[in-house]
Simulated scan of single mutants.
Amino acid sequence: MDLVKRMFMGQLARLAAGAAFVPLASVAHAKINEQPPRRGGDPEKRWAMLIDLRRCIGCQACTVSCHLENDAPLGKFRTIVSQYEVEDEATGDLSTFFLPRLCNHCDNPPCVPVCPVQATYQQHDGIVVVDSDRCVGCGYCVQACPYDARFINEHTQTADKCTFCTHRLEAGLSPACVESCVGGARIIGDILDPDSTISKMMDEHYSDLKVLQPEKGTHPHVFYLGMDDRFIDRPEALASVWDVRGEDFSEMGYEFSGH
């Protein structure tokens, strides 16, 4: 049996085993406001990220550093920077628009209530995480996320996503994507602290801040400064950088496919 078939059969076996313990009725009746109690994290903090699109140069340093820091499988990413060619509506001139994307660590995350085993949960500090020891890899949370921010990790067979690098935050460090950002476009901090950089920037630019898909009612905590209004909702477009090739250099698809 070749590698692809083994991986596929392994996933089917895991899903079948997990399904035996999944109360489907509870999933069917889950609503976005039926969140389990928060656990873990510092209740005196609320982590958020502000992305200044005026400073993003699309270098992909954040994508690469996150991929290395979190050991993601080939072709899967916890954060990406999608690149689009856009037309100026007034002049018709073309320009490039970079849109960094990641888990939005919503205050009302739709991925949490659909998890049948409560492997996906929200910490007291607002960060949404996955308990890989409990996750059965059913993929409900992947489908529920409106931001395409989750995937099933083929190595662990569990849900995977951005965690704001909680392991680094707990050590007093910045997330890998923030630390590696060449233009200083990513700012993370505690929005409950009025003296934090992110709080001061949010106060200064309050009227200009935007979030993705606000109509979903998820209350995202990734804020964008300098956002083109055409990208608040997911545009019908294909990202245009980097193709993924296998060990034999055959093309496997685009790294940003599905984003």
Rank of each mutant, 00 (worst) to 15 (best):
D52G: 11
H67T: 04
V112A: 11
V128M: 01
W47D: 05
L50Q: 08
Y84C: 12
Q83K: 15
E44D: 14
N70T: 01
L50A: 13
T120M: 13
R55C: 00
G126Y: 05
N70H: 06
E89V: 13
S132N: 10
T96R: 08
S82P: 00
E34C: 05
C62G: 11
I127L: 15
V86Q: 08
A30V: 02
I32H: 03
N104F: 05
L94S: 12
V27G: 03
P113V: 09
V117W: 07
S82Q: 13
R38Y: 02
Q60N: 10
D52N: 14
P73I: 09
M49Q: 06
H105Q: 05
R101K: 12
H29Y: 02
N70K: 02
I127V: 15
S26I: 05
M49I: 05
A48V: 06
A19R: 14
D42R: 06
K31R: 13
V27K: 07
D71S: 02
A90S: 10
P100C: 04
S82I: 07
L94Y: 11
Q60K: 06
D42C: 09
P100G: 03
N108F: 14
Q35C: 11
V86D: 03
D125E: 08
I80V: 15
Y84K: 06
P116A: 09
T91N: 05
E34Y: 01
C62Q: 01
V64E: 09
V22D: 13
I57K: 05
P110K: 07
C103P: 00
G92R: 11
L15I: 14
D93K: 15
N70D: 05
P43E: 11
L102F: 01
P110L: 12
V130H: 12
S65D: 08
V64A: 10
Q60S: 10
Q118P: 00
Q123D: 07
A30P: 02
A30N: 03
E44L: 13
R134L: 15
F97I: 12
R54Q: 09
S95P: 05
M49E: 08
R54I: 00
C59R: 00
G40V: 12
D93G: 07
C115E: 00
G58L: 10
I32Y: 02
H105S: 06
Q122M: 14
H124D: 13
Y121C: 09
W47Q: 04
Q118V: 14
A25M: 08
L68I: 08
C62N: 01
S65H: 01
C103Q: 01
I80Y: 03
F97G: 12
F77I: 09
